[in-house]
């Protein structure tokens, strides 16, 4: 589900923000920004401040984004996975699309219950000498406690909207959100417990070696302060750490009990 087609991703992003697509041809995408998107992307707060003060509507800019490297010579911005523009868009998504409440769309002819699910997308980072990330999407049925480990894949196959469909009604959660979240965390704790952490062993070994070297360096204790600081630096560089970071999550009302 990672971004494979950048052009399609951008197209969807601007459409979802109600921007008019002026043209999209062979990896060259032209968009008429809305005022909201202009403010998010074009970095000209003074312009908008002035316009508002003077009572003008303001004139949102057009943007041309080139994903096809062969078209780089054309007028517009070349956008790729490292370019500041994409970083900006991604940061915006991460900052503003963190929470949600959605309902599965069905067209039943009789009353249908929807089950509350807590869905969390969590990144686990393993950080020692080096660092790597792992991403989990976990869903928990807040009525019967059933858990699903690849929740985003499941959700991708159904239709979801911010409003509830006709003839559907929601069931009240039996499990509180907070304890649900704790259950998810303890499953991750389990997962981590069961791993072999060679990376952490290596990091601790490096930590120990560098600490020994440091003691070797200071034959007299007069440089006490400096040594303390350097021990601290070694600690920061090698101490193995595991970090949980919730990327986004929310409350989903789904027709399925167990997914």
């Amino acid at each position: 589900m990672a971004i494979h087609d950048l052009n399609a991703f951008l197209h969807a992003f601007f459409k979802a923000h109600h921007c008019q697509i002026l043209s999209n041809d062979n990896g060259v995408l032209s968009i008429q920004l809305t005022e909201e998107m202009d403010k998010v992307l074009m970095n000209r707060p003074f312009y908008w401040h002035y316009m508002k003060k003077m009572g003008y509507a303001g004139d949102p800019m057009k943007l041309t984004l080139i994903t096809n490297p062969d078209k780089r010579q054309e007028k517009g911005e070349w956008i790729h996975f490292g370019s500041p523009r994409l970083q900006q868009i991604i940061r915006y998504l991460q900052d503003t699309k963190k929470y949600t409440k959605l309902f599965q769309q069905l067209s039943p002819n009789k009353n249908t219950p929807l089950y509350p699910w807590l869905v969390t997308n969590i990144k686990i980072s393993y950080q020692g000498k080096h660092k790597r990330d792992e991403l989990f999407s976990i869903g928990l049925n807040l009525i019967n406690g059933v858990m699903h480990a690849k929740m985003m894949d499941v959700l991708n196959t159904i239709s979801l909207e911010k409003t509830i469909a006709d003839y559907c009604y929601t069931l009240s959660p039996m499990i509180k959100m907070e304890s649900g979240f704790n259950r998810i965390k303890s499953v991750l704790d389990q997962y981590i417990e069961n791993q072999e952490h060679q990376w952490a062993v290596d990091s601790l070994q490096a930590l120990e070696e560098e600490t020994k070297l440091l003691h070797h360096f200071y034959t007299e204790d007069k440089e006490d302060e400096m040594m303390k600081r350097e021990l601290q630096e070694i600690q920061e560089r090698f101490q193995p750490k595991i970090l949980y970071q919730v990327i986004n999550g929310g409350l989903f009302y789904l027709a399925t009990e167990t997914s």
Partner: peptide, 8 residues
């Protein structure tokens, strides 16, 4: 947009 943030 929620799923786009995840993809990102």
């Amino acid at each position: 947009l929620f799923s786009m943030a995840y993809a990102a």
